[in-house]
Design a binder for these strands. Sequence first.
DNA 1: ATGGCTGTCCCTGACAGA
Length: 260
Amino acid sequence: MKIATFNINGIKARAQALTDWLDTAQPDVALLQEIKSVDEAFPRELFEERGYNVETHGQKSFNGVAILSKLPLEDVRRGLPGDDTDEQARWIEATVVGRQAIRLCGLYLPNGNPAPGPKYDYKLAWMDRLRARAADLLASEEPAMMAGDYNIIPQPVDAAKPEAWVEDALFRPESRAAFQRITNLGFTEAIRSRHPQQAGLYSFWDYQAGAWQRNNGIRIDHILLTPQAADLMTDCGIDKEIRGFEKPSDHVPVWVELDL
DNA sequence: ATGGCTGTCCCTGACAGA
């Protein structure tokens, strides 16, 4: 089963690029971020006609997450637990049943800039709530994954120009420590586990300053697997080539292949 | 060397993104 995460940066602007990628890559499940659409405006028929079940957690103009799945989605939950006043649509989870069941969580972690400031405080508070949910997933001792746009550059090797990011919310020590606290609970970060030292693995290139042409990228989209899910991983990758296609998102898909 | 973009909205500039 191939499961991918992809920050599409707006479903209206990305309908063509997204369906082109789906038709080529053929993921069984796609966790989408930044749909920038309310649920009613999401063009679900584009995906239903390709055999996907569609669940969304949308918001007007900003944020918004969705799950596309060729297998039925069960027990869908929307919103990251831990703060009933949080109105930003950044979290959706559901169970997919293959040969065995896996809990899939799609997330769009807050950017946090400018830092320091209230947006950075919100990011770190959100990561506290994420850690709590992550601990619960591990305690279940079942296959589960948390995948999405983490807006975290984990290590200097994950940026073409790490020195340019030292003051940025994506790379500040508190951000990276919060991410590490989560992974240290016992998750496997798919791409880095398969390529421990490799530089040049990126999932985002800014639209500005010819970042793609200069390969000035960062790796901020991640797939975290519980031990029971990590045991099932047979492959993973980054579909970087679509960044150079017509009208691309600034992110590219990251995916894992699981034996289930 | 510098500056460079894109998407959204009761739209045409402000805000957000990273």
